[in-house]
């Protein structure tokens, strides 16, 4: 049977296969860790059960063939008794093993309950077709942060992510960190995880949400707690002032052109929430929800013709003469 060697080969591949920063097999926190240990337990039990079943089948076939070939006399009554015992034992073992799995799962479920009593961080994520809006709430409105397409969290304490959707059903899934939660309009649910060490972890939309479901990724940036405080402080600041005249012209183009119709930049009159917030655009690692690495060339390509990179996206092409484009890029490049 070709499945056996394949299983072993693939398990070996698993280590060197997919990227480690978006894999459920490389847990980076207690939630994903609990699930991973449940998985290895289940895999071990499953393999044993499978080998036993297929082994029994192979043995039964071999034994029947040998009996027929040797012309052995059969004793139907004895056969019947033996089969009754065998099937009953098989059935009983099945029940016991399944019960064992169920109990192990109950233990996992208990370990994964949301830890509301401890210190935690709350973040709100809203899904849109095909980007993520992130809010870092605070009782003081001036301390609230609205961001997009990159999730920043501290390590070492539980992160509670309240999820909902603005349009269709999406799903937030960071495999290194936790299982997924669906983002459903008019429903709010909570996903929680905790990150052990700093790094950038991959997350992606996991519920088919239309044309560009494939390109709705969300980098999750985990900072050590002190670094996180620093990041949050920078995020709370309004947009950086343009540093030179070209950047100032760029800001003008942004505010007077179509950009401001959809994108907000705090500290400027642009306040539309139709598209992602751009206040700290230049500090993000990627553009268009993980589709492109952030950089001047990619940003230019995106502004001029988003449909070529992400066909079906809501953002229209913006025709700009080269000088205007340079100015706009200079302004956006300064939005750290």
């Amino acid at each position: 049977m070709s499945a056996r060697p394949l299983l072993l080969g693939c398990v070996a591949l698993a280590g060197c296969g997919g990227a480690r920063n978006q894999s459920a097999l490389a847990p980076e926190g207690p939630v994903a860790g609990e699930v991973a240990s449940l998985w290895w337990f289940a895999l071990a039990v499953a393999t044993a059960v499978y080998l036993a079943t297929v082994g029994a089948l192979a043995w039964a076939a071999w034994r029947a063939r040998r009996r027929a070939a040797r012309g052995e006399a059969t004793d139907p009554a004895r056969d019947h008794r033996r089969m009754t015992v065998a099937v009953s034992v098989g059935g009983a073992l099945t029940v016991v093993i399944l019960l064992g799995f169920f109990v192990r799962d109950l233990a996992a479920a208990r370990a994964l309950r949301i830890p509301v009593t401890r210190d935690h961080v709350k973040i709100r994520v809203t899904g849109h077709q095909w980007w993520w809006s992130i809010e870092y709430p605070h009782p003081d409105p001036s301390q609230r942060v609205t961001d997009a397409n990159e999730l920043h969290v501290p390590t070492g304490i539980p992160v509670l992510v309240e999820v909902t959707s603005h349009d269709v059903i999406h799903s937030l899934w960071a495999p290194n960190l936790a299982g997924k939660k669906d983002l459903i309009p008019r429903y709010v649910d909570t996903l929680w995880f905790q990150v052990d060490r700093p790094g950038v972890y991959g997350a992606q939309c996991a519920e088919f949400c239309g044309h560009q479901h494939a390109k709705m990724a969300l980098p999750v940036v985990a900072h050590a707690p002190r670094d996180y405080a620093g990041w949050l402080a920078r995020a709370r600041r309004p947009a950086a002032e343009p540093s030179d005249s070209m950047a100032r012209r760029g800001r003008e183009i942004f505010l007077s052109g179509p950009c401001a119709l959809c994108h907000a930049i705090t500290g400027t009159p642009a306040g539309s929430r139709v598209g992602p917030e751009l206040t700290h655009l230049a500090s993000r690692r990627t553009l268009a929800a993980g589709t492109l690495p952030n950089g001047k060339g990619n940003l230019a390509a995106w502004i001029l013709d988003p449909q070529r990179i992400k066909p079906g996206t809501a953002m229209p092409a913006t025709a700009l003469p080269p000088a205007d484009l340079e100015a706009l890029l200079a302004y956006l490049g300064g939005l750290q």
Binding site: A3, Y50, V54, A108, G179
Partner: peptide, 22 residues
């Protein structure tokens, strides 16, 4: 039987939340 076994694995909510829709 392989499919049946992975089906039982996904009966676990915790595990399913990792592999659902994948």
């Amino acid at each position: 039987t392989i499919g049946g076994i992975t089906g039982v694995m996904q009966a676990s909510v915790a595990f399913d939340l990792q592999v659902h829709d994948t």
